[in-house]
Design a protein around this nucleic acid. Structure first.
Length: 314
DNA sequence: CTTTAGACGAAGTATTA
DNA sequence: TAATAATTCGTCTAAAG
């Protein structure tokens, strides 16, 4: 192996919230989210009480994992019965009971039924636990978590979880919910926090769409722009500029079938250069979760479609 | 030395028969 | 289900700054 390791290499995790100083957190009005300028991660949406939420998300609080995501709404579960009735036909003192045998028999039958119920609950509890964990790592807003929980419940009711791991279905539900809310996370991002291979999550995703009759529109590349731009420390005006670029090329056939993240990355790259706030392809590609090659190709195509070949000098 | 550009096959995806 | 077409990725080479 003659290949050396570049100093700054494969650090795909732009999600390290510990390097997220409070003064680097800004509010994205277009999405109603707090976004970290360092990492581009969405911190929290739903700003009912700003200061309270703000304080909860200082790095120190983060480190201590004091609170994130808040009290789980609609995620409360019933732990079911802890006690059980055994088959020994004896009472507490060990004496044999004959008279009450019939009654006990009924009780057992009834409990067998509730046992099924409580096994569903246990499943749900575990699933919601996993959901919270993933959502937190992805910094998904609460309403997305609730939607994912709802989707998972539907999946359980339809028996779709049978023969599949809870984690994979939850991951797929998160993917769907994030897309619905237009705060998309890529399959790779979700895969990163799961033991489930990306392929499997994609399978479950398709299954959910089909079996639950869910319709999600194609991901709009524009939805990726704020995160990418913020991650690079670029301004709100620049977000607007990048958005304009994508809007202009939208109908020019350049965007069909292309990775939305790559398109957004290229738009940000172009806008940054135009604004005299140049970022390298490498930087943009990294925070966008695509390769430099892809940024390059999209860049070239957009420039050509817009006839900006000459304007890009310096 | 770093950034950018381009080319190639490998690999994963979407579409169609 | 299998074949196909288009796309991205990883790596390499090379030019430009």
């Amino acid at each position: 192996m003659s290949s050396e390791n570049p100093p700054v290499e494969n650090k795909p995790s732009s999600h390290d919230l510990s390097r997220c100083p409070p003064n680097k957190i800004i509010f994205d009005h277009s999405k109603g989210e707090y976004v970290c300028l360092e990492t581009g991660e969405v911190i929290e949406e739903r700003v009912i009480d700003e200061r309270a939420e703000w304080r909860a998300f200082t790095p120190e609080e983060r480190e201590k994992r004091a609170r994130t995501g808040g009290p789980i709404t609609g995620t409360v579960h019933d732990m079911g019965f802890a006690t059980s009735i055994d088959y020994a036909d004896k009472d507490a003192s060990g004496r044999r009971i004959v008279e009450k045998k019939a009654q006990l028999q009924k009780l057992r039958k009834w409990q067998a039924r509730t046992r099924i119920q409580s096994s569903i609950d246990r499943n749900l509890a575990q699933a919601l636990n996993e959901l919270e964990r993933i959502s937190e790592l992805l910094n998904l807003p609460t309403h997305v978590r609730e939607e994912a929980a709802r989707i998972y419940r539907l999946a359980v009711e339809k028996g779709l979880v049978r023969g599949r791991s809870i984690e994979s279905v939850i991951a797929a539900a998160v993917y769907v919910a994030a897309r619905e809310a237009r705060v998309p996370r890529s399959l790779d991002e979700i895969t990163k926090y799961t033991r489930i291979p990306r392929k499997e999550i994609a399978r479950c995703y398709r299954l959910l769409l089909k079996e639950l009759g869910i319709k999600v529109s194609a991901v709009d590349p524009i939805d990726f722009i704020p995160r990418i731009a913020h991650a690079l420390g670029l301004s709100g005006e620049l977000i607007m500029a990048a958005t304009d670029i994508l809007n202009k090329v939208r109908d020019k056939g350049v965007t069909a079938g292309k990775d939305p993240a790559g398109l957004a990355a290229a738009a940000v790259y172009i806008a940054a250069i135009s604004a005299g706030e140049k970022r390298t392809q490498k930087e943009v590609a990294h925070v966008a979760g695509v390769t430099e090659v892809t940024v390059r190709n999209r860049y070239k195509e957009i420039i050509e479609a817009l006839g900006l070949e000459d304007k890009m000098e310096e």
